[in-house]
Nucleic acid binder design. Structure first.
Lengths: 127, 127
DNA sequence: AGAAATATGAGACTGGTTTCTCATTTATAA
DNA sequence: TTATAAATGAGAAACCAGTCTCATATTTCT
């Protein structure tokens, strides 16, 4: 069983109020808002337990450190801005992925990551 | 300028004769065939230099350690078998990836990784 | 062949992330 | 409210990929 604590609530709130996956460090910073002084070990422990309960998912994006997001966002993919390095959630998906593999392979899931320049960086705002 | 050495040739040969991306460790093991006692530092140094010359590409697959492959294989993606963890090169690509992002984002490249069960594992051969 | 540039192997080292330890605190159940 | 299980913070420790050092060896140029 797991107990509900101020720290764990703060961690979940941080994940939920942000629309992109966060690193443990970022989660700690966000959670400090609700729960000053929260430790990094606490963040790791809580993430581990949330993942075991399938409330949180690990998101691994090539070229970026591992990050986490709530599990209830449904199937989606990610966009990484090459300038500001921010990760954005994308909605929608593509068809025909199974046609890429030989017939005797079975495809169970997939990751798609797009890279480019986000709106803010593209307008010359800071790029 | 860079010199051609037994070690570097062994590394390139290993990358070329294997049809999937390899980790530095795997590269070292493969290169030992041609060049016994080759050091890991040598592998890293050579990879760095090959990447600078654009002869070799870094392939980062979520959930797997960084690996490398020759740069002349053209645009392709990867399949990871959840049973044997092998990485397979896939040929072909999909359309309409740009439609996933907002209009003011620009997409410059993408990674697609499929996960599932490969032919060998699926036949019950060892799965 | 001789000189200069580059590469090598071994192992120490680095930088960063994740886990562990342990004394203390907090949450839950009876 | 008491007992028990679980969680916490701080820092130490473990872990690991990748880099560096340095004495030596190899390659290339002339």
């Amino acid at each position: 069983m797991s107990y509900s604590t101020r720290q764990r609530e703060a961690i979940l709130n941080t994940l939920r109020r942000t629309d992109r996956p966060l690193t443990p460090q970022e989660i700690r910073e966000g959670a400090s808002r609700d729960c000053a002084g929260i430790g990094l070990a606490t963040v790791y422990r809580a993430l581990k337990s949330f993942m075991a309960q399938k409330d949180v998912l690990l998101v691994e994006i090539p070229g970026n450190p591992p990050c986490y997001e709530p599990a209830d966002r449904g199937h989606h993919h990610h966009f990484v801005c090459d300038r500001c390095r921010h990760v954005f959630d994308l909605h929608g998906c593509v068809q025909d992925l199974d046609t890429l593999v030989p017939r005797d392979f079975s495809v169970q899931r997939h990751d798609i990551t797009l890279y480019g320049v986000c709106a803010a960086c593209g307008t010359g705002a800071d790029g």
